[in-house]
Design a protein around this nucleic acid. Structure first.
Length: 215
DNA sequence: GAACGGATTTTCT
DNA sequence: GAAAATCCGTTCC
């Protein structure tokens, strides 16, 4: 059954672990692709230096300041999309918190997901199809057109269903620092299912080398 | 399996 | 102008 809007009307730190094991679906003209979420990260609003909402509302992050249960999709690194689900903030008055969907296991439409992820002749292992936030978006064909999409409407193309067990009782949930963030790097707001092969590998934030300027 | 560099453009300072 | 909630291929262990 579809996750109700009330599910998202809580601080993102509470919502994030509860999303593990839930299923994100995206239906397009090409067909349906669904992923069972195995790895997520919580981002608070104004109080979280790592959040896009930290410095206030802009054109890009406007959706995070809206009602919960909507998708916040952003473009980064010049070529990748990442998708969040909007929650409430760390206080009732401050909103703009969200959960980044980092990885999952494809449970429907695997052939379509593989075709979307296909770059060259190399065959992509099933576990890698949605292993990482940008890969997940590519497998589900999520882009900025879905920024602001309501994920709590049954007839909408993007929606989230609860899993058989949410969260799964037989699997331990582990936590750790968020991937690739330089600010607030010590806050353990990354959540994942212990031992799941689709969980992405941890990489600490590393400052990029400046491009060499020609004299 | 880890470590490195390059790709590529939007967004904000 | 610099950084960015990343991915991929290569090169080493």
């Amino acid at each position: 059954m579809l996750l109700p809007r009330d599910f998202f009307a809580r601080p993102s730190v509470e919502v994030a672990p509860d999303l593990l094991g839930c299923v994100l679906e995206h239906e397009t003209a090409e067909g349906l692709v669904a992923v069972r979420l195995t790895e997520v990260e919580a981002y608070a609003g104004a109080s979280d230096p790592a959040s896009h909402a930290w410095r206030g509302r802009t054109a890009r992050n406007a959706v995070m300041f809206g009602p919960p249960g909507h998708a916040y999709v952003y473009f980064t690194y010049g070529m990748h999309f990442c998708v969040n689900l909007v929650c409430l903030g760390d206080t009732e008055s401050v909103s703009a918190s969200a959960v980044l969907l980092r990885a999952g296991e494809i449970v429907a439409g695997e052939d379509l997901a593989r075709a979307r992820r296909m770059r060259g002749p190399a065959v992509i292992p099933s576990r890698d199809l949605a292993r990482g936030p940008a890969r997940l978006c590519q497998a589900l064909a999520i882009d900025r057109a879905l920024d602001g999409a309501d994920a709590c409407v049954p007839s909408a193309p993007l929606r989230v269903r609860s899993g058989a067990e949410t969260p799964p009782r037989s699997v331990k949930i582990l936590t750790g620092p968020r991937v690739g963030v330089s600010r607030a790097a010590d806050i353990p707001w990354r959540f994942w299912l212990d031992g799941d092969p689709t969980v992405s590998v941890y990489r600490p934030a590393v400052p990029r080398k400046r491009k060499l300027v020609t004299p």
